[in-house]
Computed example of a mutant assay.
Amino acid sequence: MSFVKLTVSALALGALSATAAAARDEIRIVGSSTVFPYTQAVAEQFANNTGAPSPIVESTGTGGGMKIFCGGIGEGHPDITGASRAMKKSEYELCQSNGVTDISEAMIGFDGLSIAVSRSNEADWDLSLEQVFLALAAEVPVDGAMVPNPNKKWSDIDASLPGSEILAYGPPPTSGTRDAFVELAMHAGCKHNAWVQEQGFDKDKKWVKENCSRMRQDGPFVEAGENDNLIVQRLEADADAVGIFGYSFLYENLDKLKGIKINGVAPSTDTIADKSYPVSRPLFFYVKNAHRGVIANLDAFIEEYMSDDALEADGYLAERGLVALSDERRVELQDAVLNGTAMTAPN
Results as ranks from 00 to 15, higher is better:
Gly219Thr: 13
Ala224Phe: 08
Gly315Tyr: 03
Asp270Cys: 04
Pro278Met: 13
Tyr251Val: 03
Asn339Leu: 06
Arg234Glu: 03
Glu312Arg: 14
Asn211Ser: 14
Asp238Gly: 02
Val331Ser: 13
Asp204Gly: 05
Glu304Cys: 03
Gly259Tyr: 09
Phe245Leu: 12
Val279Asp: 00
Lys261Gln: 11
Lys203Asn: 15
Gly259Arg: 04
Asp299His: 06
Leu254Asp: 07
Ala324Gln: 11
Gln334Gly: 06
Gly243Tyr: 13
Thr269Cys: 02
Glu236Val: 11
Leu311Ala: 08
Tyr316Met: 07
Asn211Phe: 07
Ala241Glu: 10
Tyr316Lys: 08
Ala296Ser: 12
Asn211Val: 11
Arg216Cys: 10
Glu319Arg: 10
Asp274Ile: 10
Phe285Ala: 00
Phe221Gly: 01
Lys288Pro: 02
Val323Phe: 07
Leu254Gly: 09
Leu235Phe: 03
Ala296Glu: 14
Ala266Tyr: 09
Cys212His: 02
Arg216Ser: 11
Cys212Met: 12
Arg214Lys: 15
Leu322Glu: 05
Arg234Val: 00
Val279Ile: 15
Phe285Lys: 05
Ala318Phe: 00
Leu254Val: 06
Arg292His: 06
Ser213Tyr: 11
Gly321Ile: 05
Ala318Thr: 14
Leu311Met: 08
Glu304Trp: 03
Leu230Pro: 00
Arg234Ile: 00
Leu325His: 05
Asp228Tyr: 15
Phe221Arg: 02
Ile272Phe: 04
Thr344Met: 08
Val208Phe: 07
Val208Trp: 08
